[in-house]
């Protein structure tokens, strides 16, 4: 039973943040499986035996469908016990901010702000929340701007793992925390860009080009071709994005972390809930957050309270 498993404690959590969406043992298993499949879906040009894949320019679409299914499984597993209304509202509102930030950045030369809040929120609210926030941010943004396409599963998947990773960073506070998060933001947006390009490389570039993917060729050969392709097309863009993310985190990170932590405190994710009879203290509590619906959920005291 997922509920029995000790919730995954990240660095953020140990330093006093609420884990808003706990990651049970099975969810962790699902995430490991999902990431394994994700690696294949993103890096297939280097991994796959092309004889078993018919048409290499269609392969990104097929893997896209697969990723969608895998994401569905991950999310279903994570929300299997139901998600608290507070966590869900937070998720919705933060992904609205992310979705709102996205078109803002697209117009202005590479200033990409999606990861900025994703990293900070993942840090404060834990890896499970970060994962879901990555999914919903990109999904909502695609729906709002009408940008649903074969690239969407890749973007969702990438962002989900960026958020998850932010939640798993080691514990520290103060200036060191900001440096850590800024460095993570820099690295994450770089890797994200590199992988996203990789997955669509065979789709976009003409096979006749000398920067194109050559099915069946040696990996180092393809890798070199890919790096040339990437540096010609999007390296500048990715660098700019990574830099803006890092700079934004470095400069506003502490204020935004404080705002998010304050929201976490106000939402009272960790505050104990107790009903007791009118005679104060004399008799034991009648019930401690009893859940009348009869469905199974880890009692709040067990999941949310720290220590």
């Amino acid at each position: 039973m997922t509920g029995r498993v000790r919730p995954l404690r990240s660095g953020g959590a140990r330093s006093g943040d609420a884990i808003v969406i706990p990651l049970g043992g099975w969810s962790r298993v699902a995430l490991v499986g999902a990431s394994a499949l994700g690696i294949v879906a993103f890096c297939w040009p280097f991994l796959i035996d092309t004889r078993s894949v018919g048409d290499t320019s269609i392969a990104p679409l097929v893997f896209g469908v697969l990723l969608l299914l895998v994401l569905g499984v991950g999310v279903a597993q994570m929300s299997e016990g139901g998600i608290d209304a507070k966590a869900l509202a937070l998720l919705g509102v933060l992904s609205a901010i992310n979705a709102g930030l996205r078109p803002l950045g697209a117009g202005t030369a590479g200033i990409e702000l999606v990861f900025f809040l994703l990293v900070l929120a993942g840090r404060v609210f834990g890896p499970g929340f970060g994962f879901l926030l990555g999914c919903t941010s990109l999904f909502a943004s695609a729906i709002i701007t009408g940008g649903v396409g074969p690239w969407l599963p890749y973007q969702m998947f990438g962002a989900a793992f960026v958020g998850l990773g932010a939640g798993l960073l080691p514990r520290c506070r103060g200036r060191r925390e900001i440096v850590l998060l800024a460095a993570y933001g820099f690295a994450a947006s770089y890797v994200y860009g590199l992988l996203l390009n990789l997955s669509f490389w065979p789709f976009v570039v003409d096979p006749g080009s000398t920067t194109a993917y050559v099915p069946g060729a040696a990996n180092w050969f393809n890798l070199r071709r890919y790096l040339v392709f990437d540096s010609v097309t999007s390296l500048g863009w990715d660098t700019l994005r990574a830099l803006t993310t890092a700079v934004a985190i470095a400069l506003t990170g502490s204020a935004i972390l404080a705002a998010l932590r304050r929201a976490g405190r106000r939402a009272a994710f960790t505050a104990p809930v107790e009903f007791r009879p009118a005679d104060d203290g004399a008799s034991p509590p009648v019930g401690r957050d009893q859940l009348p619906s009869g469905y199974m959920r880890v009692p709040r005291s067990e999941v949310f309270s720290e220590k």
Partner: peptide
């Protein structure tokens, strides 16, 4: 209509759908 498409998400992904609906409303 993407908002209507969200409604046919399987129940197991209900939370995902709700979060996206909220963000479409709030954005």
């Amino acid at each position: 209509n993407p908002k209507r498409a969200l409604r046919v998400l399987p129940g197991a992904l209900e939370e995902l759908g709700v979060a996206v609906v909220i963000s479409i409303t709030v954005a």
